[in-house]
């Protein structure tokens, strides 16, 4: 907030008129984002806990994982769909969560803007790369 002497103080607009053209037609996107967190979260409980149970706990856990193990799994459309769904829901759920965290703690407008741009760029990269890898995986590579 700027402090000015009474002599040069301009007429201040009422804070109510400040919102630029959005008065009267506020969007519902924060409501959808709130709902998405609950719906995707519920699905992810099954997908991610299932993934961790298989990959880290059952049948020797992480010790048995190698290229051949991945090739065996992704030969089945079931696990391809599982992993694709898990990738998209987890990345979008996580990005939306981090967006909330950034909004809460980054106080400067510039900081908030650039942190979110970094977040969105990273999210696009991960979704693109992950999807590409699942769809173009070649077990006979190398």
């Amino acid at each position: 907030m700027t402090t000015e002497t009474a002599a040069e103080a301009p007429l201040l607009e009422s804070p109510r008129t400040r919102s630029s053209g959005r008065t009267g037609q506020r969007s519902n996107h924060e409501l959808y984002s709130w709902l998405f967190m609950r719906v995707s979260g519920l699905v992810l409980v099954f997908l991610v806990l299932g993934h961790l149970l298989i990959m880290n706990i059952l049948d020797g856990g992480v010790q048995r994982i190698n290229f051949g193990f991945v090739a065996g799994r992704w030969s089945s459309p079931f696990w391809q769909v599982w992993d694709l769904l898990q990738l998209w829901l987890a990345q979008l759920h996580g990005a939306n969560g981090l967006r909330t965290v950034i909004n809460d703690y980054a106080e400067r407008d510039q900081t908030r803007f650039w942190l979110k741009m970094l977040l969105y760029a990273a999210s696009v990269l991960i979704l693109f790369l992950g999807t590409l890898v699942i769809f173009t995986f070649d077990p006979s590579i190398g």
């Binding site: 990738l87 992950g130 590409l132 890898v133 173009t136 070649d138």
Partner: peptide, 10 residues
Amino acid sequence: VLDTALVRVS
């Protein structure tokens, strides 16, 4: 996701 993407390398 980055480490798993290495299945596409070799």
